[in-house]
Amino acid sequence: MLFAVICADKPDHLNLRMETRPPHVEWLNGLNAAGQLKIAGPFLDAAGKPCGSMLLIAADDIDAARALAAQDPYAKAGLFESVEIKPYNWVFNNPEA
């Protein structure tokens, strides 16, 4: 099952995001290698700076998706003000459909 993980950064935490980016990317590469990562990237503010994240991940259920999202180095570093996880149905342009 697919889940959208929608994260908003805490205000004025761009430095923490940039400092934590290398382990975050390493974690994403691991998810990708395991076939669990479908899409990932940052939300951008009006100045074009990252201010949040959106991931599309595969997990067995919502609890597994929450556990996976909690492993994100950004989450562990306290970057996010909020994290929302929703079941997702990838209808258009899904390469696996």
Rank of each mutant, 00 (worst) to 15 (best):
Y74K: 04
N29R: 15
A97G: 13
E84D: 15
L28E: 01
P95D: 14
I62T: 04
H24I: 05
A34Y: 05
L68V: 00
I6A: 00
N89E: 12
S53M: 08
A65D: 03
A47H: 03
P87Q: 12
P87I: 10
A4Q: 11
F92G: 04
D60T: 13
P95L: 12
A58R: 15
F43Q: 08
M54Y: 03
F80C: 09
A97D: 11
W27D: 01
E96G: 08
I57A: 01
E81S: 15
I62H: 09
I39C: 11
N32I: 05
V5P: 00
E96Y: 14
L68Q: 11
A64I: 08
P11G: 13
C7V: 12
Y74T: 02
Q71S: 13
K38G: 08
A46K: 15
L14V: 14
G48K: 05
F92P: 01
K86D: 09
A67P: 01
R21H: 10
L55P: 02
A67R: 14
M18K: 11
R17E: 11
P50R: 05
P23L: 00
P42F: 03
E26M: 01
L16Y: 06
D12F: 12
W27C: 07
L37W: 07
K38C: 10
A64T: 13
D61P: 01
G35V: 10
D45P: 03
P11L: 12
V83A: 04
A67C: 07
N93A: 15
P87D: 12
I39A: 14
E26C: 04
A34P: 02
I57V: 15
A58K: 13
A69V: 04
G35H: 10
L37Y: 08
E19S: 14
D12Q: 14
A97S: 14
Y74I: 00
P22T: 04
L56P: 04
W90Q: 09
R17D: 09
H13I: 03
G35L: 09
A8I: 11
L16W: 06
W27V: 04
G52M: 07
N93C: 12
P11E: 12
N89L: 10
R17W: 11
A47F: 02
L2N: 12
Q36N: 14
F43D: 06
N93H: 15
D9L: 09
V91Y: 13
G41C: 07
I62F: 08
L55A: 01
L55I: 03
K76S: 07
V25G: 00
L55C: 00
Y88G: 06
P23K: 06
E26Q: 11
I57K: 05
H24W: 10
F92C: 10
P22E: 02
A40K: 02
D45E: 03
L56W: 05
N89Q: 13
L56G: 02
L16N: 00
R21E: 06
F80I: 10
A75F: 14
A4R: 09
A46C: 03
V25K: 14
C7K: 11
I85P: 00
A33M: 01
G41F: 02
K10V: 10
L68H: 01
E81M: 13
C7M: 12
W27E: 01
Y88R: 08
A40H: 02
P11H: 11
A67S: 14
A64R: 10
D72A: 06
S53D: 07
L68M: 15
D9I: 07
L79M: 13
A33Q: 10
H24K: 08
N89H: 14
M1H: 15
C7Y: 03
A59N: 08
G41P: 05
L28H: 00
